[in-house]
């Protein structure tokens, strides 16, 4: 052989699932944390909103303002990572043929999805930790059952991931980019994150309450602000979005 050392003779198997999952997750995480626009959506905007809405008299919020705002930005954080970031990232992976190429490697699709999920959850943990610390420093006093809050965040993650992957797997990458950002902006205003849904007329409010982001922020708010238990309709709303989104994504997602 011309430059010696390299033995090209066929050998080996697929590596164990754990090794594959670790490698793929590390790559997904690196790419997410390296992406400036994504960090803007996932870290900077929620943090700025938290400080802004808690401090300045921007909207007519129930007092203490911080107790209203923190649950909202936690919901926004979940949406930004599980939905917006994932939809855009996956859309472009599809467009660039990354998913197609990975399909020719020993990495099973289930592990690819698992890696995506784990990296989304890792980023969310970072976001939630950051927002909670900033909130606590700013005088936030959380109540209620932390487990219920975590369960809500997880169900929200499933619902938003399903919707993000549905979008990424069916639309062109450029359309996904525009649409995912638009949805983020619209839901930021209409989803009960920073502005209470009670600001809207009853008819509009009943429609908006059916949004996953509204259910998530409302549920978090009920738990963390007053220590109440999550309203059934919030669970149901999130479950329905998760189930229909997941079903649609698994049926309609095109890998290339």
């Amino acid at each position: 052989m011309s430059t010696g050392s390299l033995d090209l003779s066929p050998a080996g198997h697929a590596s164990p699932a754990g090794t594959q999952l670790r490698a793929q997750t590390a790559m997904e995480l690196k790419l997410m944390l390296r992406n400036g626009e994504q960090l803007l959506l996932t870290i900077i905007i929620p943090t700025v909103l938290l400080l802004l809405f808690a401090g300045a008299p921007i909207a007519d919020l129930p007092k203490p303002r911080i107790d209203f705002v923190v649950p909202g930005v936690l919901a926004l954080a979940v949406m930004s990572t599980a939905f917006t970031g994932q939809a855009i990232g996956t859309g472009f992976e599809r467009r660039y043929g990354v998913l197609r190429r990975l399909g020719t490697t020993p990495l099973p699709r289930a592990l690819l999805l698992a890696a995506k999920t784990i990296s989304v959850v890792c980023v969310e943990v970072l976001q939630v930790a950051l927002l909670c610390v900033v909130g606590l420093v700013d005088g936030w006093s959380p109540h209620g059952n932390a487990l219920a809050a975590v369960a809500l965040l997880m169900l929200g993650t499933v619902a938003f991931s399903a919707l993000g992957l549905l979008m990424a797997g069916t639309l062109r990458a450029e359309v996904t980019l525009a649409a995912a950002n638009l949805v983020y902006l619209v839901l930021l205003v209409l989803g009960g994150i920073a502005f209470p849904l009670t600001d809207f007329s009853d008819g509009v409010r009943h429609v908006l309450e059916l949004l996953p982001i509204a259910a998530l922020s409302d549920g978090l708010r009920v738990v963390l602000r007053s220590g109440g238990s999550v309203p059934v309709h919030d669970w149901v709303t999130l479950l329905v979005w998760a189930a229909t989104g997941g079903l649609a994504a698994s049926r309609l997602f095109r890998w290339e």
């Binding site: 390299l6 090209l8 080996g12 198997h13 697929a14 590596s15 164990p16 594959q20 490698a23 790559m27």
Partner: peptide, 12 residues
């Protein structure tokens, strides 16, 4: 490195 990690006995 990612593609190598998917195989048990990759090229260096």
């Amino acid at each position: 490195a990612l593609h190598a990690a998917l195989h048990s006995d990759p090229l260096p």
